[in-house]
Simulated assay, not measured.
Amino acid sequence: MRRIVIGITSLEQHIEAVKTHPERYRPRCCPHCGIKVLWRHGHYERKAGRQLEQRSLNPVPICRYRCTGCQRTCSRLPECIAPRRWYDWSVQQEALKQRLKGCSEGLRADCGGPDERTVDRWWQWLKARGEVFEFHLRARFAELGRAAGFDAFWRRVFESMGLARAMAVLDHELSVP
């Protein structure tokens, strides 16, 4: 099951989509048992607006769906919200860009950015999963195949599609993050 809905790139778009087209978030089938009958089961709220310059839209609703077979619930996130992460993809991308440039300090925690240990974790995660991510992304996007090396590849990903879209594409085949 794709956990990320591609094409919803901002919290404003997400809030509007939940109000007008919540069915866009309905999974095709239950990720637990595979039954294809899921009913809307309210929503939960999540703090997602953690960008420095963004006005707070918190908390944002995340639609939940309940399986008629196994009675478990599931949900899908918009492209702009990272699963199981405190900061969204754009903040992570900016911090990782700084690392790719060779800067050890990105956004400062005292200015509302992520802590350096958090950025280190993201960097280690990207390094550890990088080969698998590169393989799948290069297979889908020919222009990424021209980038030689880890740093050049991720710079090209950030420039061409961004971390959010790359992770949404990868979500179909892999578990991200």
Rank of each mutant, 00 (worst) to 15 (best):
M1K: 15
R2K: 14
I4Q: 04
V5N: 05
I8L: 09
L11R: 10
E12S: 00
Q13W: 01
I15R: 15
V18D: 03
T20I: 14
H21Q: 09
P22R: 12
E23M: 04
R24K: 12
Y25I: 00
R28G: 15
R28H: 15
C29W: 13
C29S: 13
C29D: 11
H32Y: 13
H32E: 13
G34S: 14
I35V: 14
V37S: 09
L38K: 11
R40V: 01
H41L: 08
H41S: 15
R46T: 07
A48P: 07
R50H: 13
Q51C: 12
L52E: 11
L52C: 06
E53Q: 02
E53P: 00
P59I: 03
V60G: 02
V60Q: 06
C63R: 02
Y65K: 05
C67G: 08
G69S: 05
T73Q: 14
C74Y: 05
S75A: 15
S75F: 15
R76Y: 06
R76V: 01
P78V: 08
I81A: 01
W86V: 14
D88H: 09
W89E: 01
W89F: 14
V91W: 03
Q92T: 11
E94P: 08
L96Y: 11
Q98K: 12
Q98F: 12
R99V: 14
R99D: 13
K101T: 08
K101G: 05
S104D: 04
S104E: 09
G106Q: 13
L107K: 12
L107V: 10
A109C: 01
D110W: 13
C111M: 10
E116Q: 12
E116M: 08
R121T: 04
R121E: 07
W122F: 00
W122I: 00
W123C: 01
W123H: 02
L126H: 08
L126D: 09
G130L: 04
F133N: 04
F133V: 02
E134C: 05
F135I: 00
H136P: 00
L137W: 05
A139W: 10
A139I: 06
F141K: 00
A142W: 08
E143L: 08
G145C: 10
G145H: 04
G145D: 03
F150D: 09
A152M: 08
R155L: 03
R156W: 06
R156K: 09
V157G: 12
V157I: 11
V157E: 10
E159F: 07
M161L: 07
A164V: 04
M167Q: 13
D171F: 02
E173N: 07
L174S: 01
